[in-house]
Computed example of a mutant assay.
Amino acid sequence: MPRLHLHLVSDSTGETLEMFAKAALAQFEDADVVRHFWPMVRSRQHLDRIMPTLEEKAGLVLFTLINPQTRARLEERCRESGLTAVPVLDQVTAALEAKLGLEAQQSKPGRQHIMDKAYFDRVEAIQFTIAHDDGISHEDWEEADILLAGVSRSSKTPTSIYLANRGYKVANIPLVVESPPPEKLYQLKNPLIVGLTSTPERLVQIRRNRLLALNEKNETAYADQDRVREEVVFARRIFADRGWPIIDVTRRSIEETAAAIIKLYNERDLVQATSPGGAA
């Protein structure tokens, strides 16, 4: 299979473009793709500096450029070099213009990063989540939107951080057989509590890799198959007894796990809003 050089050219941070490319590439698991990231390209001079690399490592160019002169220059240079250049947001923007009857405001690159209330809410969510990782500060758990529980290495922390970047205040707690969680966990009213689990085999693999990364070569109970199986049973029993939703992360990416949690969160809000005594 030939190697493809994929160039991502943006006049802002490139976050939107990178997410788009990642989602599209997920459909091609065996593809040999080398990504080249070119953020903050806001002038013809900057564009002209990177064009030799685009031409040398010819492939596919995906771009989000607002400035019409910079965009025209990129499209012209790509045509001259025989490069395929795709403006990834054009069709979506055009469809929105047609349905809304409005013209897109394309004067400022990075408009999605304006520091509005949503931005500061997201920063607050990230700060809260970092401060409540791994069972810390359980006295504040009632302030969380979501609480994730699970055994060690069940993706609690990365999932929490991902959700925080989406604006959710998240706490997480490791479930340890020898150390029962604080009673506070069972008294929470506000947070959606979700149990994360995985197969013992997958957990053992991850934990052994973790120990190797720490230069720990001795066998420990931490990565013992029977011991890990006991932990998983212990955690699942807690989830079942409390009626908490469970998500098996064995074959899920962090993004897929987070999407499932957000779906549960939204469904709970909908039920609460339409139930007697809720907001109709």
Rank of each mutant, 00 (worst) to 15 (best):
E15T: 14
E18Q: 15
A23P: 00
A24I: 09
L25K: 05
A26Q: 11
F37E: 07
S43K: 04
S43I: 02
R44L: 03
L47S: 04
T53A: 13
E56T: 11
G59T: 08
G59H: 10
L60E: 05
I66G: 00
N67T: 06
N67F: 00
A72P: 01
R77P: 01
V88S: 03
L89I: 13
T93S: 12
L96S: 08
L100H: 04
G101H: 11
E103W: 00
A104I: 01
A104P: 05
K108W: 01
K108G: 00
P109K: 11
M115E: 15
M115C: 07
F120W: 15
V123C: 14
E124D: 13
A125V: 04
A125M: 07
T129L: 04
I130K: 13
G135V: 08
S137K: 15
S137D: 12
Y162G: 02
N165E: 08
Y168M: 06
V170T: 09
I173T: 08
P174D: 08
P180I: 03
N190D: 10
L192C: 08
G195V: 02
G195F: 03
G195H: 03
P200K: 07
Q205I: 02
R208M: 12
N209E: 13
R210K: 12
L211W: 02
K217S: 10
E219H: 14
A221D: 13
D226K: 14
E230L: 10
A235N: 06
I238H: 04
F239Q: 08
A240P: 00
A240C: 00
G243I: 07
G243Q: 10
P245M: 06
I247Q: 03
R251Y: 10
R252A: 09
A258C: 12
A259N: 13
I261G: 07
K263V: 00
L264H: 01
R268T: 02
D269Y: 00
D269A: 12
V271F: 03
Q272L: 14
P276K: 11
